[in-house]
Amino acid sequence: MSGTLRTLFLTFLHAFRRRETVQYPEEKPYLPPRYRGRIILSRDPDGEERCVSCNLCAVACPVDCISLQKAETEGRWYPEYFRINFSRCIFCGFCEEACPTYAIQLTPDFEMSEYSRPNLVYEKEDLLISGTGKYPDYNFYRVAGVPVPGKERGESEHERPPVDLHSLLP
């Protein structure tokens, strides 16, 4: 009984506290960089698409709202199309977590309401930004042991030049 009354009293006292609500459209809150908002595709420091079309984001997506198709030029994989249906997206960030190349990133932008659902289907040209996003330095192809234009075989980080098969040296 006294507990109930105390609760009532304490709740009543809240009338004199400061309100926590942020008056959103007039007053924008600070969103940390790792806020899970609109999804983008970033580029590597050399300005090339980071997405290598490995499909891991698509398979990680719990609502299956990511679809892409692999294409390839001179050993470099990239998505021929990359589509996110934001009318299904739950902004869980699993795709970003799954991405091995830091290509797909969630951003602090969440103001993406539309009046018509088809407008929430984002294609690659809607997703691809011209910067590196949260990870300024990473370039997958500098690490991965596949040759791409501008990086021959054996020129990745921690790689020796290709073996000369005709050598008899041990």
Partner: peptide, 11 residues
Amino acid sequence: RASGRTVIRSH
């Protein structure tokens, strides 16, 4: 674990 069910034909 097939992916893209809700997006594959959303275009």
